[in-house]
């Protein structure tokens, strides 16, 4: 992969609030089509890291580039072209139609006075169709299930067309089937060349989905690298503070037991 400009690259990055670091010493590189899984206990600073990557919070130390350009010099629009966000849930009190919410991904390509037209609507419908949720277009997002909302938000990131996507615990609080659906959608996104950074509390999921993993805990990075190397019994035991045993299932998948 020599010569590929990383979609996201951080070196010696420290993130936190009001000058106080909650997580530091972060080195990470995200290449096109790759999935990076971020694991760590609650309060490890995963969401703070995401907010920093998105330019919503200034980094406390270190360098951070998106598509080779230093984040600090990028406008909101330039950041949104490089990195999309799939939040954990919906925060709007209004009953948007799912299609309208997905279409908001077009804001990055539209001028301030423009409204989405046919091209934007077609793109939004395509994103929903790609994820198998075309039939939700007219549904009110406040009435959707958690899994459906997550898919709608992923569709919005698709419609945004950013080179990379960060997802904050995309499968948290989803049932079994929706977890699998969302996992497939994430894999599909990566297969089209989009880079994905996601946080998860499930080491099995990280092993199944991720190309690389980063373990964050106790204010720093415990390990980072290819999932099979990073996700060991010893490291997860140290990370979560309970005994964890790694098993390899007959199909080669990794499984972790408490």
């Amino acid at each position: 992969m020599v010569g590929v400009t990383p979609l996201v690259a951080a070196q010696g990055l420290a993130v936190g609030h009001a000058g106080r670091a909650v997580l530091s010493g972060i080195d990470l590189v995200l290449e096109p089509g790759r999935i990076l899984c971020l694991l760590g206990p609650n309060g490890a600073g995963k969401t703070t890291l995401f907010r920093t990557l998105l330019g919503l919070l200034p980094p406390i130390a270190g360098t951070l580039t998106l598509g080779g350009a230093p984040l600090s010099g990028l406008s909101r629009r330039a950041v949104a072209e490089r990195l999309a966000h799939v939040p954990q849930g919906l925060s709007t009190p209004f009953a948007w139609a799912a299609l309208d919410l997905v279409m908001m991904g077009a804001a990055v390509r539209l001028g301030p006075l423009a409204r989405p037209g046919r091209a934007e609507e077609a793109r939004a419908r395509q994103a929903m169709a790609d994820l198998g949720i075309a039939d939700l277009a007219g549904a009110e997002v406040t009435r959707l299930s958690g899994g459906q909302r997550q898919m709608v938000l992923i569709a919005r990131a698709l419609a945004q067309g950013a080179a990379a996507v960060v997802m904050d615990e995309p499968t948290a609080s989803l049932d079994f089937a929706n977890r699998i659906r969302v996992g497939r959608a994430i894999r599909q996104l990566a297969d089209t060349g989009t880079g994905v950074i996601l946080s998860t509390h499930d080491p099995d999921q990280a092993a199944a989905l991720g190309d690389t993993a980063l373990l964050a805990g106790q204010g720093g990075v415990l390990a980072a690298g290819p999932v099979a190397e990073v996700l060991t019994s010893e490291r997860l035991t140290a990370l979560y503070g309970i005994a964890v045993r790694r098993e390899t299932l007959p199909d080669g998948a990794l499984h972790f037991r408490g």
Binding site: R51, L54, G55, L56, R76, R77, V79, A80, E81, L83, A84, H85, P87, S91, T92, P93, F94, D100, M104, G105, A107, V108, L110, P112, L113, A114, R115, P116, Q160
Partner: peptide, 21 residues
């Protein structure tokens, strides 16, 4: 004039910003 862009503010600041607003 700005009526569509104003829609995005209903999502909250962080979400609107991450959409490029």
């Amino acid at each position: 004039l700005l009526r569509w862009r104003i829609c995005l503010l209903a999502l909250g600041d962080d979400e609107a910003r991450s959409l490029g607003v």
